[in-house]
């Protein structure tokens, strides 16, 4: 029984990563209403950018993290500018957006593999050397603690931006209805561009933490994204708090699933939960009907 705390910690760490992916995904989905598959690979690209600056160029860790986040944001900007914005001008369907984003996912993955090979990389030199804390009977590393706190911080900031700033209000207006927003004079293209930058930057944070915590490989983007998407659907698409809470819940479900069955059922469990939710509570845990 003394492992219970540890399992909960494991779940929270996994959940924190999913939460970061879900936060960015939610934001972009809210404004554009399509499933952006590229989101996961942008997260991983952020991790690799940090890896490049820190491990290859020898830039200071904190600066590298910042550069990694900027790179992810920039990729978000570029993907919107070159692909999604023109598609929006043509009034393409959401399915077309989705397939195009699948294309971006594949391209980013392949480009990362070309530059960094398809092998697995870790950002920290050795995690074992990172400081460990013991709470109750569970162990948590310093990296993981920072990760956990970052999620709360980013969530807080995001809520603040959405609720208190002009930008946040225009984003909400576009999320409610892009047409009305445009009619009342909001430059929706510019706002959506911001949304892509912010959402992708948050995804970048997720990728960087994965790199520090366990390690990244170019093809991880898809599964990372899917977990984030599952979390945001369970939490109710567009609901910031709901997404984060659901991400932690997904972490718990997965890890208790592994605890009770075996490691190989992990992904199947998450998708089974997703399908059950879609069937019986499509609006999510906290969504309104």
């Amino acid at each position: 029984m003394d492992m219970l705390t540890q399992i909960i910690f494991n779940s929270l760490i996994a959940g924190a990563i999913y939460a970061l992916v879900a936060l960015g995904f939610n934001l972009i989905y809210g404004a554009t209403k399509f499933f952006n598959f590229a989101h996961g690979s942008i997260a991983i690209a952020g991790g690799y950018a940090t890896f490049y600056f820190n491990k290859i160029l020898g830039v200071d860790v904190y600066l590298s993290v910042l550069l990694g986040i900027l790179c992810a944001g920039f990729l978000g900007y570029i993907s919107n500018k070159l692909v999604f914005s023109p598609l929006r001008k043509k009034k393409s369907s959401h399915m077309i957006f989705m397939v195009a984003s699948l294309g971006i996912l594949i391209v980013i993955q392949a480009v990362i593999s070309l530059i960094f090979t398809s092998e697995f990389q870790t950002l920290s030199s050795s995690l074992a050397s990172s400081k460990k804390y013991i709470f109750l009977t569970g162990i948590i590393t310093k990296t993981q603690l920072i990760l956990f706190l970052s999620v709360l911080l980013i969530m807080g900031l995001l809520v603040l931006v959405l609720k208190k700033t002009m930008l946040g209000k225009t984003i909400s207006a576009i999320s409610d209805s892009e047409e009305i927003a445009r009619n009342i004079g909001i430059n929706s293209n510019r706002v959506i561009s911001y949304v892509f930058v912010i959402g992708s930057a948050i995804a970048g944070v997720a990728g960087i933490f994965v790199g520090f915590d366990t390690g990244i490989s170019p093809t991880m983007g898809m599964s990372l994204l899917l977990k984030g998407v599952i979390a945001s659907i369970i939490g109710g698409v567009g609901n910031v708090y709901g997404g984060v809470l659901a991400a932690f819940m997904l972490g718990l479900i997965e890890n208790f699933g592994v605890w009770n069955f075996s490691g190989e059922w992990k992904d199947a469990i998450s998708f089974a939960v997703l399908i059950l939710f879609l069937l019986f509570r499509p609006q999510g845990m906290f969504g309104k009907k």
Partner: peptide
Amino acid sequence: ADSFATGATDIRTQLTKLKA
């Protein structure tokens, strides 16, 4: 016995289980 999928990077719970 427990296992993990190729490409999985978080196998803490499997290890916790074995530790327990």
